[in-house]
Design a protein around this nucleic acid. Sequence first.
DNA 1: CAGAATCCAAAAAGATACTG
DNA 2: CAGTATCTTTTTGGATTCTG
Lengths: 111, 111
Amino acid sequence: MKRRNYTCGLDAAVDVMGGKWKALILWALQDGPLRFAEVRREVPGISERMLILSLRELGSAGLVHREDYREVPPKVEYSLTGFGRSLLAAMVPLGEWGEQNMAELEGLPRT
Amino acid sequence: MKRRNYTCGLDAAVDVMGGKWKALILWALQDGPLRFAEVRREVPGISERMLILSLRELGSAGLVHREDYREVPPKVEYSLTGFGRSLLAAMVPLGEWGEQNMAELEGLPRT
DNA sequence: CAGAATCCAAAAAGATACTG
DNA sequence: CAGTATCTTTTTGGATTCTG
């Protein structure tokens, strides 16, 4: 979430879930709460830094809830909020489109 | 389109239509071909530079077709391909989600 | 375990001026 | 009209080290 004045709903939606990681994190959380390290395993290639930054953005957008169990050793769980679930539902067709066309997209020449 | 090895369809889809402008350009082209200057008017705030860069990326991804009429003064039309149309269709739910939640998203504190 | 801090590189975007 | 060419700024991502 970076901007404020959106020209349309699509603009706003892409702003909130765009970028390299956020959609994948939402996707990873769809089957229930995950701990920090678990999310990391579900999103291959992400660094701790990008994970925490992305989780915080998703949190302040109201899409993800952070539950700190205040234990030692630390235990923190991340889960989708209702708002996050509604966004995830809206992303499903996009995911299916990508699934069906991945081969084509991966075969493109580099720009 | 920047990467190659996608972890899932959503990853691929966001890569191809993500960023600040590309979704808006696809959206602008939905009602038929537009000339360069017309696209620019339909996408408020975009610079000529970002417009041509984005159009080229969309073109090399096979989503947008560029038709040069080779006239003087120049006339070039951009239009969605069938592939582009299929992506646009998959983005509709996301646009509706954003439309319904724009007020909420715009009211968020800056991160 | 779940981060924070710092530094750095790369990519995306913006501003301005110019051209066939 | 439909772009190019430069330059600069901003944003994003990565690597490494450190901590409660």
